[in-house]
């Protein structure tokens, strides 16, 4: 680097040489800028479009909830995501506890199979669920969507919570028992608070996965219309600008949620660093 700079200075008279030097110094920044832009431009465009001119600037933001169909689909998606989050997190957390803590028949197999729903193409899961629901003559609708969403979210919850459990110092729970805490009190006062960051991250992940799912939902929705399904349908005719407005709102909420998780995780890491260390 220093050698390169020295050489560059040596011939710094010509304009092309100076440009080359500048490029060499800033290549990494330019590269990173392009990469970030590549990821963010589509989102930015949606935000930009939400301010599309109607009769007045920003009209669609003041009339964000003016389209009943958009609202209904959004409400259904949020309800579905919330319900999925609660149920999948509860089941997934307990599964992770069982898989890490207890020795039982089929544990290894379960540990392996739990990854399968994540690795299977969504289209396959969607089709498989549909044929299942038809075979057992379920009425397609909100319930089948809910079952499908919980099904594919659980794996993610298990994997996230499990990774947190594996690094868990069991002697902390022994200490609680030693100090007179019953198994339930130990779980409530020690295990749960220490797992909370992992569980929170898993819950947010389940929420996001459910909210944004299109492929599997498309198979199993029947007459129910979630936000992604609505957008897909509307895109054939022309998307109401309100969609862009709501999408931008959603994006803002997601960014805040992710920031919260990161903050929470950093706190958790500070907590986890309680290890015997040498005194200075």
């Amino acid at each position: 680097m220093e050698a390169a700079t020295a050489t560059a200075r040596h011939v710094s008279d010509s304009a092309p040489a100076r440009a080359w030097t500048w490029l060499r110094r800033n290549a990494l920044m330019i590269y990173a800028g392009i990469a970030v832009a590549y990821m963010l431009i589509p989102i930015a465009i949606v935000g930009l479009f939400s301010f599309e001119k109607g009769t007045a600037q920003g009209e669609y933001w003041s009339d964000a909830f003016g389209q009943t169909a958009v609202n209904d689909s959004m409400i259904m998606s949020l309800e579905l995501a919330a319900l999925t989050m609660v149920v999948a997190t509860a089941i997934g957390t307990l599964m992770a506890l069982a898989l890490v803590r207890y020795e039982f028949f089929g544990r290894r197999a379960t540990n392996l199979l739990i990854i399968l729903p994540m690795a299977t193409p969504e289209i396959v899961i969607g089709a498989a669920l549909l044929s299942l629901f038809i075979t057992y003559s379920f009425d397609l609708g909100f319930t089948t969507l809910f079952i499908a969403h919980v099904m594919f979210s659980i794996s993610f919850v298990v994997v996230v919570v499990r990774s947190r459990l594996i690094g868990f110092d069991r002697s902390i729970e022994e200490a609680a028992a030693d100090l007179g805490a019953t198994p339930f009190a130990t779980f409530r006062l020690v295990t749960l608070p220490l797992l909370a960051p992992g569980i929170l991250a898993a819950a947010l992940l389940a929420f996001a996965l459910s909210l944004d799912d299109f492929v599997i939902s498309n198979f199993n929705s029947g007459t129910a219309v979630t936000f992604p399904l609505y957008i897909f349908g509307a895109s054939l005719r022309g998307i109401p600008v309100q969609v862009n407005v709501l999408a931008t709102m959603l994006f803002a909420v997601t960014v805040i949620a992710i920031a919260l998780v990161l903050w929470q995780q950093r706190r958790a890491e500070q907590m986890a660093s309680v290890q015997p260390e040498q005194e200075v």
Binding site: S171, A176, V274, P276
Partner: peptide, 16 residues
């Protein structure tokens, strides 16, 4: 939790 004993663990096992 029903024994009249208390333990100091090698890893201290403090509640973080």
């Amino acid at each position: 939790y029903k024994r009249p004993t208390n333990t100091v663990f090698q890893s201290y096992a403090l509640f973080p």
